[in-house]
Design a protein around this nucleic acid. Structure first.
Lengths: 242, 242
DNA sequence: CGAAATGTTGACTATATTCAAGGCAAGTGG
DNA sequence: CCACTTGCCTTGAATATAGTCAACATTTCG
């Protein structure tokens, strides 16, 4: 095991609630190992219902489902601090999780979900994280169900920018890292690749965003948020880290 | 208060896990009151973040979000036994909940979410219910993002039929109660009303389903599931009831 | 019985998909 | 070092799907 929870670099971020030493001790005791993946690798195969809990420590990942004929829907984009695998353990159709970038995962032991719930505080934190994740999926469903291509793209860019910034992923530089290809964006938005490309080019030419060297920069986030039109843009809330 | 948890009619359904008397006692102690709504009434206004937890006891409801210009996306359709309001308490953009039919809700006291988590078993059950709900939203997102109108409608009908049947809502009669209007279906599927209507007529003429007298009947669920094409149709899992 | 809500249909338009082709940049092997 | 491959982005043309508008039919309910 590499990182000890007591010195977890994520905990230095103000995006997460502070924790007592006792809580950190419990979490540490449930940590089984760490796993490193390269971009494109699979963390959890679609359909697997026995996967352990993970926390994404470093890098980006996606949660997705596919149809037999190859269509893919990205359900959620995962950033550091996101808890992964609670859905898996619940029976129903289990989505897959795969790495968007080289990334590191904290892997918990098999009974971690139960053990976490033995501590009321940590159990509630699991629930809170689930609620946050669901609100991301709600947001995406609203966007995909009721937005034009333009609005969907704007929504996605604004939200990712804001989430990444809140985590301090912009290490001072302009903009934030942005590892998605247009294919990923299309799969997240329920659009074809070609239409995604055309709509993005237009937004870019209008000066709404700029992507270069794997970084996304929004000159005026408020203006792009106005294009998105679909949601009240509140900054991502501070949340627990497990 | 009307129904005591010990004699809750829902608990007679095999769709839910059995509970110990002690657990039921805890749940009973957290129940504050009951609420009756008529079709169309609002249980939780969109944006409210201080709503209490509820359990839907009887009837149907929807969870939805709207855009300022009137567009509406139904995120999920709620049936008896569904836990309502966990997302509300978490800060982010809170969806609304409103009654699709005359319906009854069990309303919990303000600190119920915390009190439930003081019991590891019940805390885990909250998490399990959240995971189930998220898997419904995932399913809808896959359907809306990647399905044709035909596929989306087929998916929705098959899933609702199957959920309602698993709850025993078909009281012996043919088919199950079906209180959705085409406008609701359109709002759930991210389609326009007109297009929804035309696609539904076609499916109906092909003999895939029949709706009359507020009931939905599927002569051959497997055949309609094949039209849906998007998901493995597993029967809804047995789940906890809080 | 009349009003309001819901469902149905056709004609027209807009949005998005598919197909096809080509460009550019980064990495690979001769 | 350069041809060659590969992955990703870009563009145009043709087509399909879905949305909008407008009207009317049917059902429900007071």
């Amino acid at each position: 095991m590499h990182t000890r929870c007591g010195v977890c670099p994520l905990r230095r971020s103000s995006a997460f609630h502070p924790r007592t030493a006792a809580e950190i001790g419990v979490i540490q005791s449930l940590k089984w190992r760490e796993r490193q993946l390269e971009a494109g690798d699979t963390l959890i195969a679609e359909g697997r219902t026995d996967a352990p809990l993970h926390t994404l420590l470093r890098g980006w990942a996606i949660r997705f489902r596919t149809v037999r004929d190859g269509r893919r829907q990205i359900l959620n984009i995962l950033l550091p601090g996101d808890l992964i695998g609670v859905q898996q353990r619940m029976g129903e159709s289990a989505p897959g999780v795969s790495a968007l970038t080289d990334s590191t995962y904290c892997v918990f032991q098999t009974d971690a979900l139960w053990e976490l719930h033995r501590q009321p505080r940590l159990g509630l934190d699991v629930t809170v994280l689930m609620a946050h994740e669901e609100s991301h999926v709600d947001e995406r469903l609203l966007s995909v169900g009721r937005g034009s291509a333009r609005e969907r793209i704007a929504t996605l860019l604004v939200m990712l920018f804001s989430r990444a910034k809140a985590l301090g992923l912009d290490d001072g530089g302009p903009g934030v890292p942005f590892p998605l290809t247009q294919q990923h964006i299309a799969d997240a938005l329920g659009l074809s690749l070609v239409h995604t490309n055309k709509s993005m080019r237009k937004l870019e030419q209008e000066g709404h965003y700029e992507i270069s060297g794997g970084r996304l920069h929004l000159p005026e986030p408020r203006r792009l948020a106005r294009v998105a039109a679909l949601f009240e843009h509140t900054p991502p809330p501070v949340r627990p880290l497990i």
